[in-house]
Amino acid sequence: MLKIGRYQFQSRLFLGTGKFSSLEVQREAVEASEADVLTFAIRRLDVFNPDQPNFLEKLDLKRFTLLPNTAGATTAEEAVRIARLAKASNLCDMIKVEVIADPKTLLPDPIATLEATRILVEEGFTVLPYTSDDPVIARKLWEAGAHAIMPGGAPIGSGQGLLNPMYLRYIIEESPVPVIIDAGIGSPADVVQAMELGADGVLLNTAVSQADDPVKMAEAMKWAVKAGRLGFEAGRIPKRTTASASSPQTGLVK
C-alpha cells in the first residue's frame, strides 16, 4: 500500500495519458497497467470544436485518482495558476508541480518548483513536485511540505533509464515522504531498477504510449513494478567477486 498525503494506492505505477495513438489503445493500456493514478495536463479547450474526444470524460472517475500536472508552466506563478484551475474541477486536489526551465532538456527549474510547492502546500493541495535527481533540492522540497518527491531518472521522454542511480538512492534513503521516479523510463528493466533502489513508485508515460504495443508494455510495466518492489523488500544478495557453488560440495559422485 502506497500512502501519499491522505491518499492510499494499491498500485505503485502511475501512468501518464499523453501521446497515445487512439483513445481505445489508451483505455486498454490503462486497464492493463492496473494503475490507480493517471496524470493529465490542463489546456485551453477549443470552444469551436468542443466535441473532440476527451479521454478523461470517458473514464470511470471513481476508479482512478487524477494527478494533473502543471506542464507548460515556466514560472512558479504559472504553475500555481494551473494548479488552481485543476482543483476547481472538484475532481482532485493532487498536483504534479512541473516547472520547466529549459526547452531542450526539459529539466525543471528547481527554484520555481520549490516556490510553487510552498504556495500549493499552504493552499491545501497534495503536492508532488517533479524535480531533478539533486538530493539537496529533494530535501528542500519535502522540508517545504511536499507530500511526495518525484525525481526524474532521465530527461522527459528520453527513455534513457536511470542516469544517476546513486543520487536517486540518496534521495530515497533520506526522504520521509514517498519517492516516485518520474520521467526518463524506457523499459521494464528501468522500472525494476528504480523499484529495487527502494523507490515507492514510478510515473511513466512515453515508455508505454510510444511502445510498439502499448497495451502489452503497460502490462509489462505493471509486472516490473511488482517484481522490483518484491525484490527490494526481499533484500538482494551482496555482489561477490568470486563464485559460490549453489550445489553441495560433499557427497560428490566420482
Binding site: 496524470t39 489546456r43 479521454f55 475532481l91 508515460n205
Partner: peptide, 10 residues
C-alpha cells in the same frame, strides 16, 4: 475568460 479542460499528459 479562459475555458480549459483536462487533456492527455505525463
Amino acid at each position: 475568460v479562459e475555458i480549459v479542460h483536462f487533456v492527455g499528459g505525463g
